[in-house]
């Protein structure tokens, strides 16, 4: 029963948020229908950040405690995070086209997301190049920590460098109440989706580790 609780909750929230995005929420005056992509873009960006935070925490705990489960957490979260970051970039690009007339613009948050994407790729690359698995986990943890601490400075530098995003609207109370409600429901739906995906990936990772252990034991008894 408990196994199905989160996936079902996620499904319900996702359907509600779809209804709200397409039917309930009013169309934005200046940008028109395209603005509805906002309710997909913000949750994607939020997941990219949330998963990177978990990579950061998992990395620190792995380096300090050296338990494989913390690495498994960081690794699984990084995988979901890479998907979310890619999604945020694609959705951002789709939104930029009708609004700014270009597919890509060096807007601060997009730029920072792109940098984040490259850090995630480095996280996986260093693992595959490290040879041994435990060494790869250690190196990746270093990237996870350094990359996360770097992120606020990247945002600061890129914001100072360029500026054209409708930035503070959400928090300064400039968002209409129905829009805010839709955004919150979308955020909740995607956060639940994140937890579901993370749990699935963790279960898979654990199964992989058990399988490897079994194989190692088997070859030991045979020799």
């Amino acid at each position: 029963m408990r196994r199905y609780f989160l996936p079902v909750l996620g499904l319900i929230l996702m359907l509600v948020s779809l209804y709200m995005v397409f039917v309930y929420v009013p169309t934005e005056k200046e940008m028109g229908i395209v603005q509805r992509i906002f309710y997909l873009m913000v949750p994607m960006g939020w997941l990219a950040l949330l998963s990177f935070l978990l990579v950061f925490i998992g990395s620190i705990l792995y380096l300090v405690k050296r338990q494989a489960r913390w690495d498994a957490l960081a690794y699984s979260s990084a995988e979901v995070g890479l998907v979310a970051t890619t999604g945020a970039l694609v959705v951002g690009s789709l939104w930029a086209r009708p609004i700014w007339g270009v597919w890509w613009t060096w807007e601060p948050r997009l730029t920072a997301t792109l940098v984040l994407w490259f850090v995630y790729l480095a996280y996986f690359m260093v693992r595959s190049f490290a040879g041994e698995e435990s060494r790869g986990a250690r190196f990746a943890a270093v990237i996870g920590i350094v990359g996360f601490i770097d992120l606020p400075i990247v945002v600061l530098a890129t914001t100072l460098w360029r500026g054209m995003h409708p930035g503070g609207v959400i928090f300064s109370g400039g968002l209409e109440s129905r829009m805010l409600l839709t955004l919150l429901v979308s955020l909740a739906a995607f956060t639940v989706l994140y937890v579901v995906l993370l749990n699935l990936r963790l279960a898979l990772k654990n199964a992989e580790m058990v399988l490897k252990q079994v194989q190692a034991n088997k070859s030991e008894t045979e020799s």
Partner: peptide, 24 residues
């Protein structure tokens, strides 16, 4: 230096992280 590709790995790790330094 402890990875297989050595010289190739450094720029790929280094460049994204030093973006703020380069911009500034």
């Amino acid at each position: 230096v402890n990875t297989k590709a050595r010289e190739m790995v450094l720029p790929i790790l280094f460049l994204p992280v030093v973006v703020p330094v380069i911009i500034s």
